[in-house]
């Protein structure tokens, strides 16, 4: 893998890499990609992609509110909360 591609991929995954990590990962990721590149040898030219293992009928839900009263518990499970808000480090 090219160094540039690695840096872009890391940025998209919101990862900060040190120069040492970049060097180490470039080699490791290249190895992983080589391993999977075996798959590109298969001829799929006339095949439609399989997007779902099981395609059943249209699975629709009626537009009726459900009653769940566990909002407080769900918010409490976040690392930090305040006045019902989930609190995270400033991302702006």
């Amino acid at each position: 893998m090219e160094q540039d591609d690695l840096i872009i991929t890391a940025a998209q995954a919101q990862l900060e890499l040190s120069a040492e990590e970049e060097g180490r990962l470039a080699a490791a990721v290249t190895e992983m990609l080589d391993y999977f590149s075996k798959m590109s040898e298969v001829d799929v030219d006339n095949l439609a992609p399989t997007t779902h293992a099981l395609v059943t009928d249209n699975a629709l839900r009626t537009d009726t509110p459900n009653q769940n009263n566990n909002q407080k518990e769900l918010v409490d499970r976040a690392p930090d909360n305040e006045n019902n808000f989930i609190v995270i480090p400033n991302v702006l």
Binding site: V87, V91, L92
Partner: peptide, 9 residues
């Protein structure tokens, strides 16, 4: 976004 925090709703 306020101070060091972001409040999510």
């Amino acid at each position: 976004h306020q101070g060091g925090k972001s409040l999510c709703d």
